[in-house]
Nucleic acid binder design. Structure first.
Lengths: 171, 171
DNA sequence: AGTGACATGTAACCTGTTACATGATTTA
DNA sequence: TAAATCATGTAACAGGTTACATGTCACT
């Protein structure tokens, strides 16, 4: 669906999309090259996209069809079918009793450090990108970034909070 | 790995684990019956768990082995191999430009409402469970719950924040 | 005797990953 | 002309899902 979403903005080849994924959606929806090409063929088979131009080196430029745009709109507004998330990070927390309090504390401080470096990266992105509120792409990209910012800050605070409690408890 | 973690606490059968998953870990690591039984056989093949008792109706009770405990400790402290998360919910936000501002706003208010009901559920859980800080299981379970509480609150606030901005922008 | 809970497993299918494979075009 | 980039695809495998399949034991 991510590929369909990008093609809704403008036509592109698999190769183009791959690069767009790297810059704009890597944090949200990572996709491998192999996956993307088979996804494009599948979307084309279903009539949601179509080849709009053929270029050099076998390049196929795809564009979204009317049916594709309908399917995308349906998907965007339907959040009931979201797969339940499976968080290895949280599962670890459940199992932290298996290691010493020192190790558990170190682990949480590492989690906090990672969240803080993610936060710094997102802040840099927020400050570097000239967001233009009149563009939907910019506006909603900024909204998604805001989520990332808040989540990273929350995670770092939470990890330090737990680390402090582990420390208190182990004395 | 979740099964291994539960078996580290006490021996259990696949059937027992299935019920434990439903109550204690469903929010973090959902698992299907089919998956669990094949996982148990795989763990047994690898020598990380072993059958400690055979009961009626073919019941096999598994216990963690020394090798299993080592593997679990390694896994718990290693957060580098976490799979990158793929968030359908955030991808939707990126694509919200495909629908009208009204629909986008409704969508975000629905996200907020869902987060708030999750929050209420977690708060009820927090207040209902008699947490005993001297038990590792309780302590770390409480820490994981705290994450859930903060995440739900953050998500609800964020969704309302975005909804307000959509509203301002569409006037 | 029948129902419900206990208890485990297999088969078909889908999605995704890594690694492999191939070739065309541009640029230094 | 060699290297980098452009461009797409296949194969083997891993992990997960749904649905199917099977049988036992306790209780009424």
């Amino acid at each position: 669906m991510a590929a369909l979403g990008l093609l809704a903005r403008r036509p592109a080849s698999g190769y183009d999309l791959l690069k767009q994924f790297e810059v704009s959606m890597a944090n949200v929806w990572p996709a491998t090259q192999s996956q993307l090409y088979s996804e494009l063929n599948k979307l084309a088979d279903e009539g949601l996209i179509e080849v709009t131009a053929v270029g050099a080196r076998g390049r196929k430029e795809y564009g979204i069809t009317a049916a594709g745009r309908d399917a995308l709109r349906d998907w965007v507004l339907d959040f009931h079918h979201d797969p339940p998330l499976r968080s290895a990070a949280l599962l670890r927390v459940f199992l932290l009793g298996e290691v010493t309090p020192e190790q558990a504390g170190d682990y949480l401080m590492a989690v906090a450090a990672r969240a803080e470096s993610t936060l710094a990266r997102y802040e840099a992105l927020r400050d570097a990108v000239p967001w233009n509120d009149t563009s939907d792409t910019d506006f909603y990209g900024r909204a998604a970034l805001e989520f990332g910012l808040r989540e990273a800050a929350m995670t770092a605070e939470w990890a330090r909070w737990v680390a402090v409690r582990i420390d208190e408890r182990s004395q």
